[in-house]
Design a protein around this nucleic acid. Structure first.
Lengths: 356, 356
DNA sequence: AAAAACTATACAATCGATTGTATTTTTTAT
DNA sequence: ATAAAAAATACAATCGATTGTATAGTTTTT
């Protein structure tokens, strides 16, 4: 009967073969300093005993963990789970592992998580900062210890950190322009937190499009929101109260809020989309393609964002000078997915305006 | 100017305070063997130097990693990302971290991942097996080394492992019964892989409901499918070809396929849901509540499944005898969410049949 | 005041793998 | 055949924290 001894180490193999543990270590890592015959004996004995390298011991000695820390606000949000998918696939390919944590948009928790990840001596960090995070000061420990960090999606201006972001401004601009092309004149904006760069950018893009087309704008067109389904419903109710000032289009900060509003309008009002109001969002949630009419949205390519960020990080890990000599920003291109929710002029394909 | 030395260790603190590193270690873990004054000096010096414990060294010595391995087929699927959310929150509360990997339903990759997780000496493992996984043989290394394992959602009969599963059979039964109550007579089933316990169970639940109600059943009512949106469309096309044998209800193995079919019917046929055909699915995808009519679905409570599995695992980690003395199976209750896609008798609330 | 009991701290081994240096063995060259 | 070169393996230190044992210093007991 084969007995499987627990937690076999290289010393166990060494003892059985009457060799030194250093030879075993070298044999297992295929070092040229070990004879081919010995290598074979070691490999076969390792298999026989069910040896598995203790990664922690190895990590301690080599000061490398083959582990990447990933911090996001919420794992289960479509955008983040797609981004994590991209990250995981990219790094797993190179035999890295990911430790994933969620900050729940809580700065204190985020700090605690970063501390833990540092103690685990991750080889690199990918983080999409919480809404509350004011700056990158809590990342300094990574910088001080030359552990590469790449931000993705959410970021901050200061800090000079490398990042992979989405061209939010352009996306919002395109979306708004598209609505204008459809003949919309009074376009409201459901805006996310002003503390967040990304929602700021979306707001800017919206503003610029209005300006470029000489369309009316008032501060009251902008409705700050948490962009949850519930909050969106509250806001549309509010908007509808002022019957003299109804918008004919609504640029929502995300799909979740846009979808909630469409559902509300359909179930509780006579207002029709896109006939009475055009609606657009961000993120291309799966539902956006399933409802009727489909929701026009700015696709953020979250998988690609995750993949790109992971590739950049791996590059930094392998070329540390790069990581700390300068900072790198990659902007992932947006693409506007036009669906029924903004198609007043139906079926006709509208080309981009060439107004200078 | 304060210089932050890289990678401060307890030895650095010891040197500065002219103490032994063992005293530092004990002071930092608040051992009663260190005087209170010394503790204070150590703590303040640690802070001053920016000391962070090297978890790897600690892990190696204590043979504990405070890390849980999580393996799922696809991170970005709604069900799994919700389950991971539940897992992460539960274990993070107890200061555990999660290493998350995806098997892409590939058995070979799954084996490789498990090997890696074992080498990292995770304290426990949560796994939702890949479709291809035939048995638990690749988990034996965890058993042999007394590392607790809890399966969730996907599982296998043999192996005697603890698991948290969903009552798929009951869910399918309830869904089918509900359709029958609505007056449906010819109910088809879009079935998932027969290799998977969960789809087997759903099929069984469907069958039992038909039998209990003495409804017609033929093998041809069951359509095997990969349950992707694309495949579902192919299958509904196929079904519609046989005009003499159209179903008046369709129990789909998941929401994704149900949603795809509803969209197809709406866009390409005259068939109306629920008027001509009732449709139901599994998982309560976010879109199911947003489309019109809403999709009736069996809610699987993925967050709760993840949370429960994580709690069970933590319990096993802290009580190892429990983990290996017996096996434990928790079945998470299903709940049927009735929406428009199955409501022929509109608005009337239908109570469960009491037919014995 | 000496012995006993207790505190606080130091010493040293250990976890398992890696790696620079030293030594032994084998091969090649003369 | 012997020296030199090369190959294979052994020795020993190390990564940083933990922990059992030993020792120095202090307080209590009688």
């Amino acid at each position: 009967m084969k007995k499987i001894k627990k937690n076999i180490t290289i010393h166990d193999i060494a003892r059985e073969l009457k060799l030194d543990s250093s030879t075993i270590s070298r044999a297992l890592s295929d070092s040229p300093r070990v004879g081919i015959k010995t290598k074979e004996r070691v490999l076969s004995k390792a298999k026989e005993l069910g040896y598995r390298r203790n990664q922690m011991a190895s990590n301690l000695r080599t000061n490398k963990t083959m582990t990447i820390g990933v911090v996001v606000p919420y794992i289960s949000r479509h955008f983040f789970s797609e981004a994590i998918d991209g990250i995981e696939q990219t790094v797993a390919d190179k035999d890295y592992r990911v430790i994933i944590s969620q900050s729940h948009d809580d700065y204190k928790l985020e700090k605690k998580i970063l501390d833990g990840l540092f103690m685990n001596r991750v080889d690199g960090l990918l983080i999409s900062a919480s809404m509350e995070t004011p700056d990158s000061s809590h990342l300094s420990i990574f910088k001080d210890n030359r552990i590469p960090v790449v931000l993705f999606d959410r970021y901050f201006e200061n800090g000079g950190l490398s990042k992979v972001i989405f061209e939010d401004k352009q996306g919002a601009n395109d979306l708004t322009q598209h609505m204008i092309n459809q003949g919309c004149k009074k376009i409201f904006h459901l805006a996310g937190s002003i503390d967040s760069q990304i929602y700021q950018q979306r707001y800017q893009g919206y503003r610029e499009a209005l300006k470029k087309n000489d369309l009316e704008f008032k501060e009251s067109f902008v409705k700050p929101s948490s962009l949850t389904a519930e909050d969106a419903v509250e806001i549309i109710k509010e908007i509808l109260k002022d019957k003299k000032n109804l918008p004919d289009a609504l640029v929502c900060g995300n799909d979740i809020s846009a979808l909630a509003i469409m559902k509300y309008l359909d179930e509780h009002t006579e207002i029709r989309v896109p006939g009475d109001i055009c609606i657009g969002g961000f993120s291309n949630e799966p539902a956006s393609d399933l409802i009727k009419p489909g929701l026009t949205t700015v696709d953020q390519h979250p998988f690609m964002i995750g993949k790109t960020a992971a590739e950049m990080l791996l590059d930094f890990i392998n070329n540390k000078e790069k990581a700390f000599r300068s900072s790198n920003t990659v902007e992932i291109k947006s693409s506007l997915i036009v669906r029924g929710s903004t198609l007043k002029k139906k079926k006709k394909i509208i080309k981009k305006n060439n107004i200078k």
